[in-house]
Computed example of a mutant assay.
Amino acid sequence: MGDERGTLKKALVGLTILGSALVFSACGGSGGGGAQGSGGEPVNFGTVDWPEAIAKTNVSATMVEALGHETEIQQLSVPVIFKGLETGDLDLFVEAWFPTMQTNMEQVDGEEVRSVTTNLPEATFSVAVNREACDAGVTSHEDLDRFKEEFNGTIYGIEPGNDGNQVVIDMIKNDTYGLGDWEIVESSTNGMLSEVDRAIEDGEWVAFTGWEPHWMGQRYDMCLLEDPEEAWGGPSHVETLANADFVEDNPEINQLFEQMKVDKEIQGNWIDQIDNSGKEPEQIATEWLQENPEITDRWLEGVEAADGTPGPEALSTYLEEQASN
C-alpha cells in the first residue's frame, strides 16, 4: 500500500500543478482542543464539483473542525476519490451516489473503502428533457431515439469521469434504447445548464443528465425520464464512504457520520445556497449550522470532541467563536 500512496500523491501533485482537477482548502480546527486526526494529520475530505457535494462537504468539515481536528478538502474526479479512499490519501467522501457509482466501488478494494451510512435515502439520477419534449411524448429513455433529430442526437453531461456521464456513455456503447449513434457532450454542471438555458431560450428540445434534489427542478419545467431497462441501476441514494483504517482509528468522527443524515429539503436548500446566494461555501456551512441546532444535536448525540467536550457543546462554542471573528 505504501507504493500506492506514493503514486497517488504524485498524481495529486501533478493535478495541482495543472490546476485543472484539484483544489485544496485547509482549515484550522480550533474547537475541541485543537487536535488533529489520527496520526497527527488533517482529516482529508474528497469532493467533486457539484453544489450538493461542496455544501455537504463544507458542513461536514466545519463540524469535524469543531470537534478539534484540522481538515483539508480536495476537489477531484470521482475515480480519483475512490482510489484515494482505498489508499488512505483521503479519509471521507460524503456524496457517493449509488447505484451509479457501483462501478467505481467495484474497482477498489472493498476491505479498504467502507460505507459509513446512507446519508440521503431518496434521490434520482437520469436523463432529463425540457417540458416541450416531454409533452410531445418523451417520457422514457425508450422515446429518445424516435426524436433524435429534435435532440440533434445529443445528451449534455457534466464533468468527464462523472458516474452519470458514464451511464450515458455505456448506453451509447451498448446501443441501449437505440442510442448507439448518439453522442454525449461533457463539460461541467454549469456548462451543461448553460446549454439547457440556451436551448429553452431558442425554443429547442434538449436532453441532459438531471438529478434531484437540485434547484434545476424548480428553475426548469423538465421531466426526468423513466428507465425501464434500469440503465441507471434503479432508484438512487447517497452514501458516506470512508477509508477503513480511518473509521477504526477515529470512532468519534465515525459516529458523527453514522448519524449525519439529510433529506431532500435540506440538500435542496444547500444546493440553492451554493449556486445562487453568492456566498462562499464556508459561510453557507457556518450559517446553516448556526440556524439548525436541533438537527446538529441529533448528528452529534453521544459524540465527544478531542478534548472530551460533548459534541453539541463543542459545535456551539466553535460557531460562537466564528461569529465573533
Rank of each mutant, 00 (worst) to 15 (best):
V238N: 03
I271S: 08
E248P: 11
K261G: 13
H237S: 04
Q259M: 09
I271A: 14
D263I: 01
E280H: 12
N250C: 01
E248C: 01
A244M: 03
T286G: 04
V262P: 04
S277T: 02
M260G: 08
F257W: 11
F246L: 00
E258L: 08
G268P: 11
K264P: 07
F246N: 01
Q267N: 12
N254D: 09
N250F: 06
P251M: 01
F246P: 01
E280A: 10
K264Q: 14
E287S: 04
V262C: 05
E265S: 15
Q273M: 12
D272W: 15
E280G: 06
N269L: 12
E252L: 02
E265Y: 15
E280I: 08
I284E: 04
V247T: 01
G278E: 06
S277N: 10
V262K: 07
P251W: 13
N243A: 02
I284S: 02
H237F: 12
A244H: 04
P281D: 01
I274L: 06
Q267F: 11
I253H: 13
E258H: 15
D249M: 03
G268S: 09
A242Q: 00
N269G: 14
E252W: 09
N243K: 06
K261S: 11
S277M: 10
G268A: 03
I266Q: 13
N254F: 05
Q283P: 05
D263R: 08
W270V: 01
E248H: 09
D249C: 01
E252G: 07
E252P: 11
G268F: 11
D245Y: 14
F246V: 00
F257E: 00
A242P: 01
L241P: 02
D249G: 03
E282D: 12
P281T: 01
E265L: 10
D263W: 12
T240D: 00
P251A: 02
N269V: 04
D263Q: 05
N254I: 00
F246G: 00
I274H: 12
Q255H: 13
E239D: 10
S277W: 08
P251N: 06
D275C: 13
N269H: 15
K279V: 00
I266C: 07
M260E: 05
N269R: 15
D249E: 09
E265V: 13
Q283F: 09
